Simulated assay, not measured.
Amino acid sequence: MKIDLSGKTAVITGSTAGIGFAIAEGLAKAGATVVLNGRKQEVVDAAVKRLAGLGEGAQIRGVAADLGTQEGCEKLIAAEPSCDILVNNVGIFGPQDFFETPDSQWQRFFDVNVMSGVRMSRAYLPGMSDRKWGRVIFISSESALNIPADMIHYGFTKTANLSLSRGLAKRMAGTGVTVNAILPGPTLSDGLEEMLKKAGTGSGKPIEEQAAEFVMEHRPSSIIQRAATVEEVANLVVYTASPQASATTGAALRVDGGTVETIA
């Protein structure tokens, strides 16, 4: 199967590192024009330079905007008023006990993890519908189904991503536009690596080994018994964004290493 996204423009939110950057790289390799996004201009510029330096031949642009705010979303939309592929990837996470999580933290997680996707989808879906082709992909999480006891506020936002993607898929019925959610499991992204370093429990061990131990302690139902790579997650996103995935919509697609204990 050869995925060709030549002539398509992809906006990937929160894409200067980790899963987002891997998705951007995968889409660029498939020929898409890629728009990177992060909060700080210098970080965005560095990511654009890094991706362009991989020599894929795709056009790479970047927009610095904080998508946890309405103003930030409007800034990105003004800079890139149209796209064919939208990947709502930007997100924050972190453990915090329910009884110690203030309203402000709930609101922050909701604004970044949910409202960014609402605003971006609302802006780009009408144009996709007019062109009779488009892809919107929400990066949810297995935590949308396996709500973590130590990150209830995070799991709540990822479940909301599933509601959004399913509802929007129905709203776009018959337009040629698909809307789906991707559910990664524990993934060796920059965020997980930083969390493991802060914990300091596996000091001296390779980061892959530390990540595997984390998975088996916190997600013992994992079948692959390790953290996924960001490229493994990106591969499913690139397929979902492709013309070949035209009959896949309204779906919650798992790349969770078998962590979720269900066959459905």
Rank of each mutant, 00 (worst) to 15 (best):
12 I>P: 08
251 A>F: 04
233 V>P: 13
179 V>W: 03
182 I>D: 01
259 T>Y: 01
248 T>H: 15
130 D>M: 14
245 A>Q: 15
5 L>D: 03
14 G>T: 11
117 G>W: 05
108 R>A: 08
99 F>M: 03
35 V>K: 07
223 I>N: 00
167 G>V: 03
87 V>K: 09
162 L>V: 01
147 I>S: 01
29 K>T: 00
18 G>H: 15
133 W>A: 03
32 A>G: 05
164 L>M: 13
26 G>M: 11
83 C>M: 09
3 I>Q: 02
248 T>D: 15
43 V>F: 00
159 T>A: 11
171 R>M: 12
109 F>W: 06
78 A>K: 13
151 M>T: 01
194 E>M: 14
13 T>I: 11
238 V>E: 09
81 P>N: 13
53 G>H: 06
132 K>A: 14
81 P>T: 10
230 V>A: 13
247 A>K: 15
220 P>H: 04
257 G>W: 03
93 F>S: 12
120 M>A: 04
251 A>Y: 06
58 A>L: 06
244 Q>L: 15
242 S>N: 12
64 A>E: 13
238 V>H: 09
152 I>M: 08
258 G>K: 13
216 M>E: 12
80 E>S: 05
255 V>T: 09
136 V>I: 15
251 A>M: 15
213 E>T: 11
258 G>M: 12
235 N>S: 15
222 S>F: 06
227 A>N: 03
78 A>P: 00
71 E>Q: 10
230 V>W: 02
70 Q>I: 13
112 V>D: 02
230 V>E: 15
241 A>F: 01
258 G>V: 09
80 E>H: 09
134 G>C: 07
66 D>P: 10
252 A>P: 05
153 H>P: 07
197 K>W: 02
118 V>C: 03
37 N>T: 08
49 K>I: 01
43 V>H: 03
113 N>I: 10
51 L>Q: 09
196 L>V: 07
127 G>Y: 05
70 Q>Y: 04
90 V>F: 05
34 V>H: 05
40 K>R: 13
253 L>A: 06
74 E>A: 14
122 R>F: 03
239 Y>C: 09
87 V>C: 09
148 P>D: 01
262 T>Y: 00
252 A>G: 07
66 D>W: 07
189 S>K: 08
228 A>N: 10
187 T>G: 06
209 E>C: 05
218 H>C: 04
154 Y>W: 02
44 V>I: 04
151 M>C: 00
44 V>M: 10
167 G>Q: 10
56 E>N: 08
58 A>Q: 04
232 E>D: 14
258 G>P: 09
208 E>W: 00
203 S>L: 13
190 D>T: 13
86 L>D: 11
21 F>W: 08
86 L>T: 13
27 L>D: 01
157 T>Y: 03
209 E>R: 10
69 T>M: 04
46 A>K: 10
52 A>G: 12
134 G>A: 04
224 I>D: 05
134 G>L: 06
84 D>R: 08
222 S>T: 07
147 I>V: 14
239 Y>G: 11
86 L>N: 13
18 G>R: 14
222 S>R: 05
204 G>H: 14
163 S>M: 06
110 F>W: 11
42 E>F: 00
232 E>A: 08
212 A>L: 04
124 Y>T: 07
217 E>Q: 11
133 W>R: 02
51 L>A: 09
131 R>E: 11
225 Q>E: 13
233 V>M: 12
